[in-house]
């Protein structure tokens, strides 16, 4: 079953022309869970549009608990992004990336690949000098 229609694929292919460096999408999932399987399907189609730069790694959460714990993953489906050096970007998307979350995912891929920041210089300076660990969580719905 295809998740992206032809128009989506064309739009994404055009957006992905701006990609610069590789992005690694790491998915922890449960093969027995519908949301997880759909998430894998969506991500497969997305990385398939630019296979030279977008790499998907899929881990069965229940068979890779140690690795999941290292990334702080406690529930699935959970997607994290790693940059060109395969360093953790701190970005997590929990749940199926559809609707609003899909738009977030595409923007994240572009940000990580190009190294761009849409934050003000003042904010970036403040964030870079933080001396505490901060967890920012946003609860959203697909529409």
């Amino acid at each position: 079953m295809g998740f992206l229609n032809e128009r989506d694929r064309q739009t994404l292919s055009e957006m992905f022309r701006d990609l610069k460096f590789p992005v690694h999408l790491v998915l922890f999932y449960d093969p027995g869970q519908e949301w997880s399987v759909h998430t894998q399907g969506i991500l497969n189609e997305v990385v398939g549009l630019m296979p030279d730069l977008l790499h998907l790694e899929v881990y069965d959460f229940y068979k890779n608990r140690l690795l999941a714990a290292l990334y702080g993953v406690e529930q699935v489906p959970a997607l994290l992004l790693r940059d060109k050096n395969e360093d953790d970007t701190g970005i997590r998307i929990l749940g199926m990336p559809s609707g609003y979350e899909f738009a977030v995912l595409i923007e994240d891929i572009l940000d990580v690949s190009t190294g761009r920041s849409r934050l003000s210089e003042k904010t970036v300076n403040y964030i870079r000098n933080l001396e505490h660990d901060v967890l920012l969580r946003v609860f959203v719905t697909p529409t």
């Binding site: 701190g90 998307i93 929990l94 749940g95 933080l130 660990d133 920012l136 969580r137 959203v140 697909p142």
Partner: peptide, 9 residues
């Protein structure tokens, strides 16, 4: 230092 999670409620 920062982890940013978006969570499908």
């Amino acid at each position: 230092r920062i982890r940013g999670e978006s969570i499908e409620a």
